[in-house]
Every structure is written in structure tokens, then in C-alpha cells.
Amino acid sequence: MLKQSNTYTNHPAAEKTTRVPKLIGIALAPVPLVLIQPVLARLVRDIATRRSELFERLGPHTKTFFMIDVDELPFVLRLLPDPKGPKLTAHRRRENIEFGASISGPFMTLFTIIDGNSDSDAMFFSRDIRIGGNTEAAVCLRNAMDDLEGSIIDDVLDIGGVAFAPLRLVMAHLRSKENTI
């Protein structure tokens, strides 16, 4: 019987890649959330239009609020994946926001899962990511995201256009690190 020895977070390359998300977090910390909200609102609207197939697998959980807590970011995200009125908003952690299901973990781990390059179950079993609240909703969201052709991160970068050019470079850098793992 062998014990697990190769989780994402204990890989040497993971040590390097965590620096970039930390820097992103530091850079975003002084930014007022009021400036971020319109960007998030546009992103979620456009993705809902482009990726309408996402909602089919969510079933009743298109009405569930998901709290996404990326460890390195200075805020949490709240997502309502409702095809008729999708919402994505940022909130400070001190706010007492209501949600149906939560997913949290380090940036790089969540990044590789969304990119389809990492197994979310294995990441959960190894305690690299955490889920809370309505487990069925979290499982539905995982299955819906996992069935998307390509990566939703590329959609975000595409929607952002020229304004997201620096972010595109950062993501390319992170993906090059991701491929070394």
C-alpha cells in the first residue's frame, strides 16, 4: 500500500508558480471592488452567451449562489450561473455573504482544474481544494465546467480583448509552468 506523494502543491514547480498568483493578489488588494464589479458583470454575461451549454448540466443549480474563494486573491467571488441573469460579484472576506455552495483553494490548483489539466476529485481527496455547502451543486458545477470544450479561461482572456493583454501573458506563463508538472 502506497501513500500519495505527488500532489500538486508539493511539487517543486508549484512553489515557483505560487509567486505569480500572490503578486496578482497584492496588485489587486488596493483596487476598490466598485471598479472590479462592472468587469466581472460583463465577463459573466458574455460567457453565459458563448457557453450556453454550461447551464444544461447545472439543472436546478442555475439558481444556486456559488462562493469561489481563491486563496491568493484579496476578495471572494460570488457566482449565480443563471442563464437568464448570470451574476458574478466580488466581496471582501469580512462581508457575510450568503451562498449555496463554496469552492476554495490555491489559484494554481483551481486554474489547472478549470483548464482541464488537473483532476478535481484527486485535488479534493488530497485536501488541495475545499468544498462546502451544497455538495450536489458543487458536483454539478464541476461536471458542467469539465464538459466544456477548451478552457473558460481562454474565453475570459478573449472577452477582455486588448485590456487583458497583460493577463494573457501571465496566463501563458502559468500554463508553461503547469505543463512542467
Binding site: M1, L2, K3, Q4, S5, N6, D119, A122, F125, S126
Partner: peptide, 13 residues
């Protein structure tokens, strides 16, 4: 040997 990280509980039989 690489499959161990995908096993449940990191254990195999």
C-alpha cells in the same frame, strides 16, 4: 507508478 496520485485516498490494491 504515476497513477498513485489518482487513486482514492492515495492508496491502491
Amino acid at each position: 507508478s504515476t497513477l498513485i496520485s489518482l487513486t482514492e485516498g492515495g492508496k491502491q490494491t
